[in-house]
Design a protein around this nucleic acid. Structure first.
Lengths: 152, 152
DNA sequence: CAGCTGACTATACAAAGCCATAGTCACCTC
DNA sequence: GAGGTGACTATGGCTTTGTATAGTCAGCTG
């Protein structure tokens, strides 16, 4: 991989990227295990508090605090709804931002599948065809790591 | 997204996926901020201890312990080398497993770029063409979240 | 109107992650 | 043989993440 530095980073040279790096920002926002587990369930279609807690195995306290954080940063949206004859409920829906994290979450699954032979691998398909998380250029190529250029 | 459960998971039904989930396994292995920052530098071509520590801003203690863990799980390989007239050195090289985490790390960057307007966005290109981290099926389609099927 | 359910909140605590500072140790150079 | 450098290790401390257990509160159901 070839790295090109421009702008402020070029001046900083070898100095650490720290909080300016989008990777670091993302890790601070959604880098915890609990967050990723909740997102996994959101992709499966879970929207309700108790289901999130039960299916992730997280405690209710953790679930509450993480869901709140995810709403704060715009990954989930909390909406009120009411089925006729039932009481008011809340549901947590994925926003566009939340949906955009899908490649990260399933990229992790793919990596485990390939390199750690998990007891229950998790396969993605589209219309019956296997789906992979890949780096793809606008020409449709799937470059190897050493063919990529990073511009900061 | 449609979720199909088969095997042991189908019997468990709504029970938590816990440690059996490849996503959870991956998060426990490489889910810390320090790990992802070190991997970022590995993709940039860094191989030496002090460079990892300086460029990530992590302390040497953290760097040492994380690099060791990454070697243990097979993401990096530690090799000895010696330039003529110089002392013995060590370097940390990406393994295939480490390279396979690239979509996850740059997927995080892509998400930050899109949703958090970072001061220094990080762009990937291949032969001048922008590169994206996407879910892609073997027919070349790029399915939306709701067109995907997960099989566990 | 007692009880259940969904969606939390409160409190107390353990473990992990990360930091700062300091020290070590082998080997090379002057 | 004194000092420098690369690659760590040791110690102590703070903060975050997560757990366990218990309590709350609104509103529907019997």
């Amino acid at each position: 991989m070839h790295v090109e530095l421009k702008g402020r980073l070029a001046e900083r040279g070898q100095q650490p990227l720290g909080d300016y790096c989008p990777i670091d920002l993302a890790m601070q926002a959604v880098g915890q295990r609990s967050t990723i587990l909740l997102l996994r369930e959101a992709y499966y279609g879970v929207t309700r508090f108790d289901d999130f807690a039960a299916r992730t195995g997280l405690t209710e306290a953790t679930t509450a605090s993480r869901l709140k954080a995810l709403v704060d940063i715009g990954v989930l949206a909390k909406t009120e709804y009411q089925e006729p004859g039932k009481r008011r409920r809340y549901e947590y829906q994925l926003t566009e931002s939340g949906k955009d994290l899908m490649p990260v979450v399933f990229g992790l699954a793919q990596w485990s599948n390939r390199h750690h032979a998990p007891p229950e691998p998790l396969e993605l398909t589209h219309d019956g065809h296997p789906v992979e998380i890949v780096a793809r250029c606008t020409k449709g190529h799937l470059p190897e790591l050493n063919e990529l250029t990073v511009t900061v």
